[in-house]
Amino acid sequence: MTDKFVLKAFIAVLLMAAVTYVPRVLPLAVFRREIKSKYIKTFLKYIPYSVLGALTFPDIIYSTGNFKTAVCGTAAALFLAYREKSLVVVALGAIVVVFLAGL
């Protein structure tokens, strides 16, 4: 771990922070009008659901590096979430099931 490597890494991290911050605030800061189109308003209200669906499946299946344990963990998360358990309980429950399935 040389100083040169750390300096380069630090600069890269600052650049990463910039290309993470700008997409987050740009529309929020620039776009201040209320949208009139019913279609676009509905579209924007459905974004939270479509984005989480797309982020979760199928990627969750690869999240533990083992197909079998990931499927067990996914099933546990779905079951606990269906019972409307809190985020923490669902996350910890899935971790415990993956861990046990991997033993």
Binding site: A70, V90, A94, I95
Partner: peptide, 12 residues
């Protein structure tokens, strides 16, 4: 490796 599932479990 088990903790890798935590983020996705939160999404669910």
């Amino acid at each position: 490796s088990a903790m890798g599932i935590a983020l996705y479990a939160m999404f669910i």
